[in-house]
């Protein structure tokens, strides 16, 4: 996984609640067997009209926001299906940080596995950011995971307190950790667990 440490880029507002993963990446793009190229389908039904032409009213189609690296969204962002295609699509489009008041569990998890930072901030902070990037299209923010700070275009921190993020997940993102390798190093514990379970709960084994 590519590490996430510090990110500077345009932030785009998406003031909708319950943005679901069907919206982030509609089903017709799930037929791929690859992780790449999904940016083309990101928010497809918002970005394109039914006839396939771009909808100029959608934020990511507006010149000031088309190179956005950060998305500021509404509550319960990423609800719905477990498709990891959602963070893949964001990443492929160039967005590697989503800021929202709250996230759905699976999407939240999936982001961390792919070097995307989902940042849950208090409502009023998100509202301030939303207003800032809406009022001044093309505003660049800096998200510094090392210092846990969001900096405005002038380089000054926007909020007094560092943002909250799970320490273990922060470390994994900063290092770009390969989680499977980490778990594989616990092979002996896994072996021991399996041996104990096989004698205590013999029915867990399938008869297949």
């Amino acid at each position: 996984m590519k590490p996430f440490q510090i990110l500077t880029g345009v932030a785009a507002p998406l003031p909708r609640v319950n943005v679901d993963t069907d919206q982030i990446i509609p089903k017709q793009f799930l037929k791929t067997v690859k992780r790449t190229g999904l940016g083309a389908g990101l928010f497809y039904d918002f970005r394109f009209k039914p006839d396939g032409t771009p909808d100029p009213t959608f934020v990511l189609n507006q010149p000031a926001y088309k190179d956005a690296k950060i998305l500021v969204g509404g509550a319960n962002f990423g609800c719905g299906s477990s498709r990891e295609h959602a963070p893949w699509a964001l990443l492929d489009f160039g967005i590697s940080c989503v800021i929202a008041p709250s996230f759905a569990d699976i999407f939240f998890n999936n982001c961390f596995k792919n070097g995307v930072l989902p940042l849950a901030l208090p409502d009023e902070q998100v509202q301030r950011l939303m207003a800032l990037v809406t009022d001044r299209p093309g505003t660049a923010l800096t998200v510094d995971l090392r210092e846990r700070r969001i900096l405005g275009p002038d380089g000054a921190p926007l909020f007094n307190t560092p943002f909250p993020v799970d320490p273990d997940r922060r470390r994994a993102l900063l290092e770009g950790e390969d989680e499977i390798t980490t778990t594989e190093s616990r092979g002996e514990s896994l072996d021991a667990f399996e041996a104990q379970q096989a004698s205590a709960w013999p029915w867990v084994r399938t008869r297949a």
């Binding site: 477990s82 990891e84 699976i106 998890n109 999936n110 596995k113 989680e179 499977i180 594989e184």
Partner: peptide
Amino acid sequence: GIGTSEVEHVLATQ
């Protein structure tokens, strides 16, 4: 439910 990275993780490590 889990994402695809976790699917890979479970396949490899159970």
